[in-house]
Amino acid sequence: MLLEGSHFIHSPPSRVFALLNDPDVLSRCVPGVKSLVLDGTDSYKAQVEVAIGPVKGKFDGKIAITEKVQDQSMTLKVEFKSPVGIANALGTLKLEPENDGTTVHWAGEPQLMGMIASVGARLIGGVAKVQADLFFSKLELEAQKVES
């Protein structure tokens, strides 16, 4: 199932791009993040706590940024595992200048395995949307903070 959405950030693409590549900013913005550390170039190790419907789990994983085009786009490869299952995804972020800010278009195809697939598969769309809303609203705050 392809999930996608877009969010407007009141900040130029160069700024937004920089924020999206800052581990400290990401640690503060990714919902449920317990830790997020740089692990080589464009690669992160992370621990997040996520609930998908009735299934809640602590996920350990890696995020690798591939195909990075400065201030324009990047592709993310996400691999997380937990006792309740595995979540992998390949996602893209595209930054589009718009008026006084940037529209971030995101898309991704999650692959769920194990318990989260058997009880959470049809809930993932809603969960992803809520998580994205949370992430981008926090990113907006970060953008304001940096600018002020």
């Binding site: 009735p54 692959q111 395995m113 194990g114 697939a117 058997s118 598969a121 049809r122």
Partner: peptide, 14 residues
């Protein structure tokens, strides 16, 4: 089952 062999109806929700 989805194409990856994941059971997506594994509870009474589904």
């Amino acid at each position: 089952y989805d194409d990856n062999g994941q059971l997506t109806s594994g509870s009474y929700l589904e």
